[in-house]
Amino acid sequence: MSDAAPLIRLRGITKTYGQGAAAFQALRGVDLDVYAGDFVAIMGPSGSGKSTVMNLLGLLDTPTGGEYRFLDVAVQTLSRDQRARLRRRYFGFVFQGFHLLARTTAQENVELPLIYRGQRARERHRAARQALAEVGLAGWEHHTPAELSGGQQQRVAIARAIVTQPRVLLADEPTGNLDSRRSHEIMALIRQLNEARGITVLMVTHEADIAAYARRVVHFRDGAIEREDVPVIAADPSADAASAVKGS
């Protein structure tokens, strides 16, 4: 795909839960390269290993065997604290559930990762406002989640994920709690972030029309990669970039 070294490289990755007769092999020798600026959708039936591999990619778990290299660093050799620092610096996360703090404003939710970094208040406020504007929520900074629609809540979650300027955005069923129109608006926004800012996107989804926003679709089955496709670009009229930044 590229002459450059991959941003992420998995070789022979295995993951086993339990021991002895109760052992379950969730991943069985996964090889995968992801390049900077890529947009990869991961699909597969329940139990196929897609969520397990996403947890490994996001440094939330470690493999049982094989090699994971990120920016040519052997991740499996790092301590828990080193992995946490790598995760905070380079990764942003978006989940199916928005995971927003109910009694805090949109801006305060977006500022949380910056608080963990020890960033000063004035810098946090400016960065959070900028991230909210980028996802189409300028003017909504002081609204709580209860005052926002589902689509707007997911936009806040995306702003929180990108406020730290991550290299990689990991999205786990990011449209799972949204209706069709909001889903396409959110996916158009994610694709815009991928194209305009060069953020590498790794996304788990079970919906083919959502996977179609990616550049590559990797299909998992029984803990291994079954095949890889290049999807037809989504053509839903509600999913253009202008619609994506208006907010919903």
Score class of each variant (00 low, 15 high):
Glu185Gln: 15
Ala171Gln: 08
His184Arg: 14
Gln119Asn: 04
Gly150Met: 11
His219Met: 05
Gln96Phe: 03
Ile233Thr: 11
Glu111Tyr: 02
Phe95Cys: 04
Lys15Tyr: 00
Val245Leu: 09
Glu111Asp: 09
Arg80Asn: 09
Thr64His: 10
Leu56His: 00
Glu185Asp: 15
Leu56Thr: 02
Ile42Tyr: 02
Phe24Asn: 13
Gln119Met: 09
His219Arg: 11
Leu148Cys: 10
Arg89Ser: 08
Glu207His: 02
Asp3Pro: 12
Ala211Thr: 12
Leu170Gly: 15
Leu27Gly: 15
Ser48Asp: 07
Tyr17Trp: 03
His142Cys: 02
Ser46Gly: 06
Leu193Trp: 12
Ala131Pro: 10
Ala241Ser: 15
Ala234Asn: 15
Asn177Glu: 11
Ser149Ile: 02
Arg80Gln: 07
Arg191Pro: 05
Thr77Lys: 10
Asp81Val: 03
Phe98Glu: 07
Ala214Arg: 11
Val135Arg: 15
Thr200Gly: 05
Leu57Phe: 02
Phe220Thr: 15
Gly37Met: 06
Asp179Tyr: 05
Lys50Pro: 08
Asp172Thr: 02
Val40Tyr: 13
Asp222Asn: 06
Arg191Cys: 09
Ala171Glu: 07
Ala106Met: 03
Arg88Asn: 12
Gly198Trp: 07
Leu57Asn: 05
Leu137Cys: 07
Phe93Pro: 15
Ala128Met: 04
Gln130Phe: 00
Gly139Phe: 08
Arg117Ala: 15
Thr77Asn: 12
Phe39Gly: 15
Ala211Lys: 14
Gln82Asp: 08
Tyr116Asp: 02
His142Ile: 00
Ala74Phe: 01
His184Leu: 12
Leu78Ile: 13
Asn55Ala: 02
Pro63Asn: 04
Pro237Ser: 06
